[in-house]
Design a protein around this nucleic acid. Structure first.
Lengths: 290, 290
DNA sequence: CTCACTCTGAAAAATTCTTTTCATGACAGT
DNA sequence: ACTGTCATGAAAAGAATTTTTCAGAGTGAG
């Protein structure tokens, strides 16, 4: 590499005195709105600067680059450095852990997943789903796969407290038809399906669709085939430094939804929670007496 | 201009469902380190994504661009917008969300929890627990409370694949005594108990201790009363901008443990997973993904 | 199992970009 | 005015990039 560790801008400045008229004109055009102005083809920047393409070639070679592609590669690196620095630079996580400890590696991966997932999730989608889930008139059905069943259960457990008409479909698909039988148009089927997508869930989604139920899908970045049937889909980044996929970010979305739903109908929810507390107390009392 | 005012990222996301396998692979590659990854020539990005150049052309046309140059011109505009507007960088979190959207508030909170938890967790403890869980001679018993039951189930589901002698205690405490009856000295009882600590779990922990079982506890920063009986305790930050506590970081620790255990006995685990795959194939529960 | 279909990348064709060549013109010194 | 030097861009040559074509592989339906 001819030019090391100095920015292209630096190089231009240091050579500026040795440039000819047309080259100075070009250099100023490049420095104006640097470094973006150098992103296009040699033809483009020559036109923008009002010079000919040979002038561009001559100048970048004079600056020490092998040719225009070499020059542009350096610019790209700088653009990358400028763009991709911000929040990511966390100062080491677990203080007393070596940098390669699984906890730190995992943390890095999860933060990356979270970031990517959030840039991919449309807040309008999120809000729509929250509103659908808040609608008491719609019954809710939760279902997950072998691994994601626990997420479905977690979601269900909370929603059951917040509102009526919620059901958790068991892992055993033989009982699913009876649930589908009861689905009315407007009801919601919340499906968790990440890779090693389960064919049965697609069948379930199809059947539910025919009953008029609307489907909300939590899946991974590669998207379950059920996505075609879903009204709203959350595509979550699930990759971890592990033989297993990570459900952490999925759980994150679920918890955010729980809060959004609860928040939209807090008065009613509060009442339900109070009642529930009372019921728990009574149960404990039963136990103690028994 | 074919595509107006939407970012290339948006366009990719909105078309993602309609993309084919190779195209999704390419889209992932582009979104990873976006938008810099799309700065090079079509050949470069095709190579980076591991697809052919025709795939790139087909995808960008499917996305609504005239061709690759058109696509890249849009990217350049975005890079320019991003660079020349420093404020825009920070809200790359959730794209078009105001800073106070629940998703962003939640993300901030979770990152904080994660950071705090990791500085609090001793890696020696983590490694000890991983080693205990790897020991085939010890039987594992998982149990959780009303909310945390799903976490116990999640942990159990994975460990069941990785190693033999695992059991999930049902939510119904009436069946617990039979499990305690079978516990031998050295067995492990993994308890999840976060606030609104459940008295029954303390009773269970006490009984298990008397049988010689060792207790691993996942609890919150205030620590469940069962902590006194536990050999190892993970104190996790659980506060979220919500009426509910967050289980995200707890799940994070669980997944890291799963990986650590699996990694320490990978050969054996691999065999088990293969066998399991075979069983699934036989029952046609799973289906190869496309 | 067969057939129709889609997806995919190798390779060719078309296009665009990059570099080189070269003629022109400006200018300084003789 | 003449000559040599240099800067510059038009245009050609050379290299790439981009697009199109096409055949094989894979998939799903019947």
């Amino acid at each position: 590499m001819t030019v090391a560790s100095k920015t292209v801008s630096d190089v231009i400045h240091s050579h500026f005195g040795a440039l000819t008229r047309a080259e100075k004109q070009l250099a100023e055009s490049l420095l104006d709105n640097y470094p973006v102005s150098g992103l296009g083809s040699i033809t483009t920047i020559a036109e923008n600067a009002g010079v000919s393409t040979p002038t561009v070639v001559r100048m970048v070679q004079k600056l020490g680059f092998k040719g225009y592609p070499d020059f542009q590669a350096h610019l790209h690196q700088e653009v990358e450095a400028t763009i991709s620095n911000p929040i990511a630079k966390h100062d080491r996580w677990a203080t007393n852990a070596p940098g390669t400890h699984i906890l730190n590696r995992f943390a890095d991966a999860i933060i990356g997943n979270l970031r990517q997932t959030l840039t991919g999730v449309d807040t309008a989608t999120f809000d729509s789903v929250a509103q659908l889930l808040s609608d008491r008139k719609r019954s809710l059905y939760f279902v997950g796969g072998r691994i994601t069943g626990a997420l479905a259960e977690y979601f269900f457990t909370h929603m059951q407290v917040i509102r009526p008409n919620t059901a958790l479909l068991s892992a055993n698909s033989s009982s699913w038809p009876q649930y589908v039988l009861n689905m009315s148009p407007g009801d919601l089927l919340i499906i968790f399906d990440i890779r090693r997508y389960e064919q049965e869930l697609v069948s379930l989604a199809t059947a539910a669709s025919k009953s008029g139920a609307e489907i909300i899908l939590f899946t991974d970045q590669w998207a379950s085939p059920a996505a075609k049937l879903a009204k709203h889909t959350f595509r979550v980044q699930i990759e971890a430094p592990s033989a297993w996929d990570s459900s952490v970010v999925t759980l994150f979305i679920v918890e955010a939804l729980i809060e959004a739903v609860q928040n939209s109908t807090w008065d009613e929810t509060k009442e339900r929670m109070k009642t529930l507390e009372g019921l728990f107390e009574q149960t404990r009392l039963f136990r103690k007496l028994g």
